[in-house]
Design a binder for these strands. Structure first.
Lengths: 340, 340
DNA sequence: GACGTCTACTGAACCGGATAAGTGACGCCA
DNA sequence: TGGCGTCACTTATCCGGTTCAGTAGACGTC
């Protein structure tokens, strides 16, 4: 089956290639009657513009890129990315933009991918995830002049636009909630320490614990996997001044932590309270269901995609704040045991 | 920053554009010395070929497409797709192929996406998931002549190549294992009934239960979500001749089922045995850890990607069988209660 | 009715590669 | 020594769009 080209449409409509191009792009230069006739012919023969030819002529390639730098193991199990991607996708496909996905091993590989995409004109812009403290991707993208929106922050994004959520506020709310329940020994199992949002959360946690005079507040960092979450939990629960509440940086580690607690003979929430960050259906499936910090991840992704399309469109946008995660109390949190 | 073109390389190396093209593509027509000089210049100025221009000149676009037709909710939580995608990606990026992802609402939208991708020359081929019984996408892709590999089967793929796993054999193994433990009343919570692999599993289940003379074997279909899995489990466990073992078509439903059983006061595995299909880290995180039918999903995706690249390369490949899922017994299965 | 202006187009150049066809230099062989 | 083949390139054309520079005809204006 041969693909129809703009020349086929032109011939059939009895006009020139140029006229067809104007008609398809909603540009002035053709009468309304001719435009309708051309569009009708295009629809009739099932014409769609070659994205290659469009991109070559200096127009956009109608694709945006997303490079992910997490090992496959972690990616598979964490609902976060898939939800984020589905939100991004929803926004993009509504505007007929394609999403190009690539997994990379490290930051250098990611920068190489950006450089290649840019050189190949394969994408009009990129979404950047997992912002690090002092992230090398930020200056690299600025140098290339490749439109980009960072998902994360605030801070550390240089000239690049970003979409962020106030994790510090959410963490403060959580700690205050636990303290209101009577907890004084609260621990936190954080994610990868080199990620900016981990640093932001850690700082907020330290700060609020100091303010509320919680002496034993401790953060243990991890890598988001269930295994590491379990190990961190085991260590925390074996310590002499065992915490009465643990806040986890993602849902998978929280579930692993719950399992460890039960295995060690601690009842949740009677002996130990657990809070998960990222409220996925998983949190509702386990027993007891987990108190969690949730927000609309697909909407977050859609928001970022909208920003990126605006940047590609030439708009100058800075940082935009998305919804703050809100706490949904469920069965995994309660007052601490008396003897605590 | 201006993107270097083939003309820049040619000027700098003191040769023509054509020579550069031959050198870059490993074609004869330039001496080895010149080739090396050209490659050195290209590397020096950070040249990469415009994928648009390549695609336009009739070469490949070096991208493959994957359209997913599941609601965002389901996609986010099921590790399966993300693992599959990461496997596909690993294979593709090793060959500098890009993956274009698109979420679609239904089969018609998916066919429209294929048609558009084909018209736009955006992808060289596509991977097709979630094969249905009497799938309309199969003839549509054949008509377009767009290279495609179906992930699923066997059967129902018409002229298209496919990669499949023997679900029937895995299910038979599972039922025989449960029967060996002493179970006679086994139920199954299946996935979406319109999916071919659900039909294959259902048929295998019915067949093996008939052969082993298990009278009360029943399959309840569902939509893969935890909610539906929980509902189906509640219904099964409330029935007069309650099953002593339940096999779930995915891990999420199995975990939901475990939760329901515990909520109803049934101990797992003492009162009820549970088997999950798709062995993700989730199965190891819950308590008790779930006996599961697992296989290497990223490898499955990589296998499919390899097949697709072969088809794109002009090879005529038919159906290829991937590894069969194998049962990993864990704490969620045991002999049924005496009174059962 | 000569002139300028506007509309609705046409024609051609151009984007950056791939590739078929052409060219000059060289070696080989009769 | 002339003819032929091969090598190592160059030149020109093409892919399918976008876009700029025309241009013909309609219309208004004094």
């Amino acid at each position: 089956m041969k693909r129809p080209t703009i020349a086929d449409v032109a011939r059939r409509a009895g006009v020139s290639k140029g006229a067809v191009s104007y008609a398809l792009n909603g540009q002035p230069g053709v009468s309304e009657a001719t435009r309708q006739r051309i569009l009708a012919v295009a629809a009739e023969i099932g014409f769609s513009r070659s994205s290659a030819a469009r991109a070559l002529s200096g127009a956009t390639s109608d694709a945006v890129g997303l490079a992910l730098c997490r090992p496959a193991r972690t990616l598979g199990i964490e609902p976060f990315f898939m939800e984020l991607i589905s939100g991004v996708e929803a926004e993009l496909s509504a505007r007929s933009y394609a999403l190009t996905l690539q997994m990379v091993a490290d930051q250098d590989a990611e920068i190489a991918v950006y450089r290649r995409w840019w050189g190949e004109r394969r994408v009009d812009g990129v979404l950047v995830c997992d912002l690090r403290t002092d992230d090398r991707r930020v200056p690299a993208l600025a140098e290339l002049g490749l439109p980009a929106v960072v998902i994360g922050g605030p801070g550390g994004t240089g000239e690049l636009a970003n979409v962020w959520s106030d994790d510090a506020a959410a963490l403060v709310e959580t700690v205050e909630y636990l303290v209101a329940l009577g907890h004084r020994r609260i621990a936190r199992v954080g994610g990868l320490p080199e990620l900016l949002h981990t640093a932001i959360r850690t700082e907020a946690f330290t700060e609020v614990c100091r303010r509320l005079d919680l002496a034993d507040a401790v953060t243990v960092t991890s890598d988001y996997t269930g295994e590491e979450g379990a190990r961190a939990t085991r260590r925390l629960l074996s310590s002499p001044a065992r915490p009465t509440a643990v806040v986890y940086d993602n849902d998978v580690m929280a579930i692993a932590g719950l399992s460890v607690a039960q295995e060690m003979g601690l009842a949740v929430p009677t002996d130990l309270s657990i809070v998960a960050w990222d409220d996925s259906p998983l949190c509702r499936l386990v027993h007891p269901p987990l108190t969690a910090l949730g927000r609309d991840i697909p909407a977050y992704g859609a928001h970022a995609a909208r920003q990126l399309l605006a940047v590609i469109g030439g708009a100058t946008v800075g940082g935009v704040q998305d919804e703050t995660a809100h706490l949904t109390p469920r069965g995994s949190t309660a007052a601490p045991p008396r003897t605590g």
